[in-house]
Structures are given as structure tokens and as C-alpha cells.
């Protein structure tokens, strides 16, 4: 593949990461780790910034859930919350948002039902998800 710009380089590297992670952790975790790689690169493992992101994302998500108007955008925000909680090593938070994703994805439309296995994998082994997600961010920061 001919590389034209930074975006291409990022895609090539992310694809390579995902392929390697798939071999070790399976397809469901690997797809989610790709989202971890792409999650707010500038925030990294900065605890204060991550807390700020969680606070910012939580309010609209909570409003959508309470109004029972959960859309694809809401689910993307919930996934961001799950990743932020993983980077904060907040197991309760990870389990909470994986529960919500499992609940809503099984009833949702679009591509979301296909992600159900990812949230099941997180619920099965939240500690491994947290550990690897944090290691990925740490590695990317050092690279």
C-alpha cells in the first residue's frame, strides 16, 4: 500500500496493532482495543483529563437513557465512557457501561447488535480489558 499522508500512516499502524492484538486476545477484544487506540490520543493516561472527559460525556448519556432515547450517538458516547473508565482503572465503571451497552445493543439497530460479543468479553474479564487498554495507551505514549 502506498502511504500518502499521516492519516494513512495511522490507519496502517492501527490495522497492524489490531491484527497483532487479535492473535493474542481474540477478535472481540481486538476490535475494542482498536477503539482504545483511537480514543482521544491527546488525553492519553492523564487522570484529571480522563475524569473531565467522563464528566462531560456522562450528562448527555444520562439524559438520553432517562428519556429512553438512546441512539447510535448515545452508544458511541457510552463506548467512550467505557474506554475512559478502563484507562482510569475503574472496574465498576467499565462493568456499568458494558452492562448498558449489552442491554441496548441487543435491542438496537444498525451495526450495534454485532458488537454484543465485545461487551460480553468485557463483562467476562474486565480486569484483562483494563490492563491491556492501559498498556496500549502507555506504549503509544512512549512510542
Amino acid at each position: 500500500m502506498q502511504i500518502h499522508c499521516l492519516k494513512d500512516v495511522q490507519t496502517v499502524l492501527t490495522d497492524a496493532f489490531e491484527a497483532g492484538l487479535r492473535q493474542k486476545y481474540g477478535a472481540d477484544f481486538a476490535r475494542l482495543f482498536r477503539d482504545v487506540i483511537e480514543y482521544r490520543p491527546r488525553v492519553d493516561l492523564d487522570v484529571a483529563e480522563l475524569h473531565r472527559c467522563v464528566e462531560l460525556d456522562t450528562t448527555p448519556v444520562l439524559k438520553d437513557i432517562v428519556a429512553n432515547q438512546v441512539t447510535g450517538a448515545t452508544l458511541r458516547a457510552v463506548r467512550s465512557l467505557l474506554i475512559a473508565c478502563a484507562l482510569l482503572a475503574d472496574r465498576t465503571g467499565v462493568e456499568r457501561w458494558a452492562t448498558e451497552l449489552l442491554n441496548r445493543c441487543s435491542q438496537g439497530g444498525g451495526d450495534w447488535p454485532a458488537t454484543t460479543a465485545q461487551w460480553q468479553a468485557v463483562m467476562k474479564d474486565p480486569l484483562q480489558f483494563i490492563q491491556v487498554a492501559r498498556q496500549i495507551k502507555y506504549f503509544l505514549n512512549q512510542a
Binding site: 438520553d64 437513557i65 432517562v66 429512553n68 456499568r96 449489552l102 442491554n103
Partner: peptide, 14 residues
């Protein structure tokens, strides 16, 4: 409660 398995608070309110 808001976040619960199988059915969340928003779904119950509805």
C-alpha cells in the same frame, strides 16, 4: 436505578 442489566431505568420509565 438507571443502569441495570436487561432493562435500564429509562426503559422502565417508558
Amino acid at each position: 436505578d438507571v443502569v441495570m442489566p436487561q432493562m435500564d431505568g429509562g426503559q422502565l420509565l417508558a
